[in-house]
Simulated scan of single mutants.
Amino acid sequence: MNLRWKRSIRKNLVGYSFIIPAVIGFLMFMAYPLFNSLYLSFMDWNMFKGAAGSTFIGLDNYKEVFQNEYFRSGLLHNLLLMIMGVPLLIVLALVIANLLNAKIFGRGLLRAMYFVPYITTITASALVFSALFHPEFGPINSFLRSLGIESTPGWATSVKWALPTIALFWVWKNVGYCTVIYLASLQGISKSYYEAASIDGANKLQQFFHITVPISSPTTFFLIITSVISSFQVFAEVQVMTQGGPGTASMTIVYHIYDTAFKQYHMGYASAVSWVFFVLVVIITLIQWIGQKKWVKYV
């Protein structure tokens, strides 16, 4: 019995030795920053003097959040990014996945091509995207001018077009990932559904809307939640392409947090914004979770 007990302890120690690095990494790089930011959100924090030069100010930072015009502007722009980007992303991904699920020439190559933007670094792809959509020398506007359109968009340099440009880039960057997830879902749909529909006289379009879309609704629900969260996390795109401008035309909440914390060194206020932002994302996710009961069909 004593020998079995020793062997059990040895096996447990081997198992714990595998998870200890992950636990240490979680505590150092996730748990500690998370709770430290909550502590900082109640402080007027001096980054250069630390706790000795900082004072407790209670909820003042949170009051400032809702009074700050940059936060309100960032929240509005994030909501607009979500409204513009997420529906377009989901629809495009489902349509592309449905096409790539069929037996077409070069299907494997096309799948890889759609996925490449997702695994490309945001900085590199954003720089290329900015060059493509350059208002004067970019090939997109050159093509539009060749069609006789004289008043071409200013894209990232325009107050009107900066946010749609960010949304367009975000959709292009993420459509490959959503397409791959949809492909996995579509390949799990039994062909008998489509065969029965064909016998009943349903065409391809009817099969798509009455079979593919309903059965794929759990996947759609998953992608909507992850895409909404992703749209609220937009930062690198803004940093590389617009820096929140022109003016505040493309300012997002995450960019506002970065600008306030690491440029203005107002770390306490930035931490408060982060926690308000976290609560807003949780609320939006809960609303989606409650609403999915009315339209998600589990087969």
Rank of each mutant, 00 (worst) to 15 (best):
W295T: 14
I181Y: 00
F18T: 00
G108T: 11
S41G: 04
L81I: 12
M43L: 11
L40M: 06
N68C: 01
V65W: 00
V95D: 10
S227I: 01
M113F: 08
L186I: 12
S190Q: 10
L34P: 06
E136F: 12
S125Y: 05
P117F: 03
T226G: 09
Q207Y: 05
T220G: 07
A249H: 08
R111F: 12
L79M: 11
V86L: 04
Y255M: 11
P21S: 01
N203F: 09
F29P: 00
D200K: 12
D200N: 13
W5K: 15
M47E: 07
N36P: 00
R4S: 09
L38A: 10
L88M: 14
Q264M: 10
Y62E: 03
P135W: 04
I283G: 12
Y265K: 02
D259M: 13
V91I: 15
F66H: 05
L144T: 06
I224V: 13
F35N: 07
S73N: 09
P218Q: 08
W155P: 04
Y194L: 01
W155Q: 02
N98P: 12
P33G: 10
I215V: 15
T219N: 08
I140Y: 13
T260I: 00
L163H: 00
I96A: 15
S17Y: 00
G53E: 03
T260A: 06
F235H: 02
I225S: 10
S73C: 07
E64A: 08
V228W: 03
R10W: 02
K263M: 13
I287C: 11
K294H: 11
E69G: 03
S216M: 08
K263Y: 13
K160H: 05
E69V: 01
V91E: 13
L109W: 09
T55K: 05
